[in-house]
């Protein structure tokens, strides 16, 4: 079999040479290894996925601080809690479907309730796994994690923002769930990315509609906004990288100067970003209509991810169409 092609294969969304690609994962490992070099008590764990999530790079630089837990996610989560109780800052990663669903009770009881400063890194989120199927899709993790008291929930838009987030919260003595796709994220921010927990990034304000996106949906939402503006609409975009604690102020400000609000997430429309924004709008008596765009309370079909994003309207074109349909529904 040929192993010479190193490019992203559009039909499979696989890299023929994974180790040199998936830029977001490279920067996560590098940042964690740098933080360990700088004296932060970082340890890293994974569950037989160090090549999938790139953490083998951390292991190369800090073999004594890297722990391979094999295919035992629940054990890894509880062990991370034990490590954190001694003052270490464990960063543990596995596929988001196994993290948030399989190990949910361990996360709730051993990490969230006990307020252990563990960083849970759920990768391959949403429908990024494509034809691997429902067992590997994660369209519930934001809703689950958001419902755990004392849990912080962060979905960076790209690798640089993820790196900035890891640094920004390195001393925070609280648990955090990080959500990231397959590490192939197009760059939104670049090397000068900044991050403040709970403080949304307003890309632009708009009067016709404000699009509030999180994680992997920030890039295509920015692209969709460009297309909508080219058609004469005034479109705002907010990167809601922190789902919890939620930046209610940014949402209410957008509601104050936009006729409509649409959320965009690679997640079930129930309980995640859309649900969180709906709570803020309704509890503050805001009259602005909200449309929640995402996976519409269904399990996702199999297919190559690129095709699935199109199928569910979660690429730039799909997001623009969804926004226009929403606008026309309320146009008087």
């Amino acid at each position: 079999m040929s192993k010479t092609k190193a490019d992203l294969q559009p039909e499979s969304w696989s890299y023929t040479d994974t180790l040199d690609k998936a830029p977001s994962f490279a920067i996560i490992s590098q940042t964690l290894a740098d933080l360990a070099d700088e004296g932060h008590p970082i340890v890293v764990g994974t569950a037989d996925l160090k090549y999938s999530n790139g953490l083998f790079r951390f292991e190369e630089r800090h073999p004594d601080r890297f722990f391979q837990f094999g295919i035992s996610e629940q054990n890894m989560i509880s062990a991370a809690a034990g490590m954190a109780s001694t003052g270490l800052k464990p960063h543990v990663a596995t596929f988001a479907s196994f993290m948030a669903l399989l190990a949910c009770e361990q996360i709730r009881t051993d990490i969230a309730y006990t307020m252990m400063p563990v960083r849970l890194i759920g990768t391959h989120t949403g429908i990024a796994f494509g034809f691997y199927g429902t067992s590997h899709h994660a369209t519930e993790d934001l809703a689950i994690m958001r419902s755990l008291a004392d849990m912080n929930v962060v979905a960076p838009a790209d690798g640089p923002q993820f790196a900035a987030a890891l640094r920004a919260v390195v001393d925070l003595e609280e648990p955090i769930y990080f959500r990231i796709g397959r590490g192939r994220d197009p760059e939104v921010y670049g090397a000068d990315a900044t991050f403040e927990l709970g403080k949304a990034i307003v890309h632009e304000a708009g009067t016709d509609i404000t699009l509030i996106a999180t994680g992997s949906m920030v890039y295509p939402t920015l692209e969709a906004a460009k297309a909508l503006r080219a058609e004469g609409l005034s479109v705002g975009v907010i990167d809601m990288h922190t789902i919890k604690p939620l930046d209610a102020e940014a949402i209410l400000k957008a509601a104050g100067n936009s006729k409509l609000i649409m959320t965009v997430e690679e997640h079930n429309v129930l309980g995640g970003l859309g649900g969180a924004v709906a709570e803020v709008l309704s509890e503050n008596g805001t009259p602005v209509p909200l449309h929640r765009h995402g996976i519409k309370d269904t399990y996702v079909i199999v297919g190559p991810p690129t095709h699935l994003y199109k199928h569910y309207g979660l690429d730039a074109d799909g997001i623009a169409v969804e926004a226009k349909t929403f606008i026309s529904k309320f146009a008087k």
Binding site: N75, A79, G82, T86, T109, D110
Partner: peptide, 21 residues
């Protein structure tokens, strides 16, 4: 030294403490 109540968790937690040591 740690919370418990849900059976099965604490041996893993103890493993984490041992590795941390």
């Amino acid at each position: 030294d740690f919370s418990s109540g849900s059976l099965g968790h604490n041996l893993s937690v103890g493993l984490g403490m041992a590795l941390a040591g």
